[in-house]
């Protein structure tokens, strides 16, 4: 997945589409951005230039689908997080999760969410739940899985046509919903795919690359200031200069 930050307006359609697709319940009373259930989140970041040149960049943030050095897979005590070798997607088995939240502690991207409340839908809204995805449950940690329900449906369809699953067989809900086509999804291993072309662009970068977790979500921006502000770590931050 490659996300073009220059095209993200921060409209939030991806966030909503994600919640609808995955039967994520609306906020319980008292929910804050810190206790919310947003498998997909858009964060506004300033590019670090000074006013009035400063611009915000909206960063869609979901599970970065780390490579084999996935921090969350190795820490889960009961194999409730799994790495799918075929697709490279990190999947979550919520029914096996006991809610210890160790994975959330391990995730440097803060892309894992805990179901702090029982899911509650307004009366009648259960009719609008996506039948391909189970409902959420209290007490477990969950995260983006690149729309597992859609992947399964695509797999079933491919199997029915007795052909292997093709990378273009499905698109996650956020990709589909993005009005500005800022998110590109596909097979990074296929050199001919749009996504790998985008990923090889010099404008493309990954979050916290130094940690070596090998995230499979890439970001791109033509603005050097944006790239700098999203890849810098505390070493070179301005704050340090100021506060010594």
């Amino acid at each position: 997945m490659v996300i073009d930050l220059d095209r993200c307006t921060g409209c939030g359609a991806c966030v909503i589409a994600c919640a609808v697709e995955n039967n994520v319940p609306p906020a319980h009373e008292g929910t804050t951005p810190r206790t919310g259930l947003t498998w997909m989140r858009v964060v506004r970041v300033d590019d670090g230039r000074s006013f009035p040149d400063t611009r915000s960049v909206f960063v869609p943030l979901m599970c970065q689908q780390c490579d084999h050095h996935t921090p969350c897979v190795s820490v889960c005590p009961q194999n409730a997080v799994e790495y799918d070798e075929e697709t490279g997607i990190v999947t979550q088995v919520p029914v096996r999760c006991l809610g210890c939240r160790y994975c959330m502690t391990a995730c440097p991207y803060h892309a894992r969410y805990f179901n702090w409340w029982d899911p509650e839908w307004p009366a009648g809204m259960e009719q609008t739940l996506n039948p391909d995805v189970s409902t959420r449950m209290r007490g477990v940690a969950e995260k983006c899985n690149f729309c597992h329900g859609r992947l399964q449906a695509a797999r079933a369809k491919a199997a029915a046509g007795s052909r292997p699953l093709a990378p273009d067989d499905y698109q996650p809900a956020c990709v589909e919903a993005c009005p500005t086509e800022a998110i590109v999804f596909g097979d990074l291993n296929d050199p001919r795919s749009t996504v790998s072309a985008a990923a090889s662009s010099p404008d493309t970068f990954r979050l916290l690359e130094h940690l070596g977790t090998g995230p499979k979500v890439r970001y791109r921006s033509r603005s050097a200031a944006v790239r700098e502000s999203l890849t810098r770590n505390s070493v070179s931050s301005e704050k340090e200069q100021v506060h010594g």
């Binding site: 939030g12 966030v15 951005p33 919310g36 858009v42």
Partner: peptide, 24 residues
């Protein structure tokens, strides 16, 4: 608020971009 512009009422899931993430 563009999402509320013509809409006196928020769908409950709009909490994702308001209360739960601070996007707006």
């Amino acid at each position: 608020d563009p999402l509320r512009r013509d809409q006196a009422f928020d769908a409950t899931l709009m909490s994702k971009v308001r209360d739960e993430s601070g996007l707006y």
